[in-house]
Design a protein around this nucleic acid. Structure first.
Lengths: 101, 101
DNA sequence: AAAGTATATCGAAATATCTCGATATGCAAA
DNA sequence: TTTGCATATCGAGATATTTCGATATACTTT
């Protein structure tokens, strides 16, 4: 965990909308029951967009931000892009913080 | 730990200068060997200001920010104001994050 | 009381972030 | 290949943050 990683992760988490999205992705079945497909690759942008109460472009931007920080991964399936939590990164960050803060 | 607490703590930590200050305060004897007085109440603003490479007003503002977030406490001793880490708050935050992130 | 030192607050300029609508891109269906 | 849907990117306006110098406040010393 470099200082740069830490910086982008904390900056990503400093926004409430992004924290909400990350929290929602913990329970896709509960938070996004409307999604037709299964949750193998996570949740698609449209679902998150509808729940967030923000514009589509804003949500897309937030997701890109979370992904640059390494907190989520994405996978395109046809015309949809699915996002899911990167638990490894999230746990590593929480551990690092607990240890060094 | 309310959502407001979390928000102000993460926002406080999202700035590298404030993270540096908080890290320095972990080892006052090592990081601020120049301080004349003992470290009972922490480190005084002037010491932090000299180390930070930022203006006095900026450092004072960062310290106020950390204090509003609950991450440090301050105590005036004569004309000096000493800041020290609030370990209880810091640990509670790290634990909360580890649990809920 | 006056002057000096330490810290906090104020006001403003520079920079970054958030948000949106418009539009581009990638893929699917007709 | 044209049309339509899902997502990403662009450009711009609004807001927030960072930083500074100037000044105010708190305290000490003379």
């Amino acid at each position: 965990m470099t200082q740069n990683d830490l910086d982008s992760i904390i900056k990503a988490l400093s926004n409430p909308a992004r924290r909400d999205i990350l929290a929602w992705l913990k329970s896709p079945e509960i938070e996004f029951p409307e999604q037709c497909s299964n949750y193998q690759y996570g949740v698609c942008v449209g679902q998150i967009f509808e729940k967030a109460g923000l514009s589509q472009s804003t949500v897309s931007s937030h997701l890109a931000n979370l992904q640059r920080a390494g907190l989520v991964t994405s996978k395109r399936q046809g015309q949809w892009v699915y996002y899911q939590r990167n638990e490894q990164c999230i746990e590593a960050f929480a551990d690092y913080l607990k240890q060094t803060l």
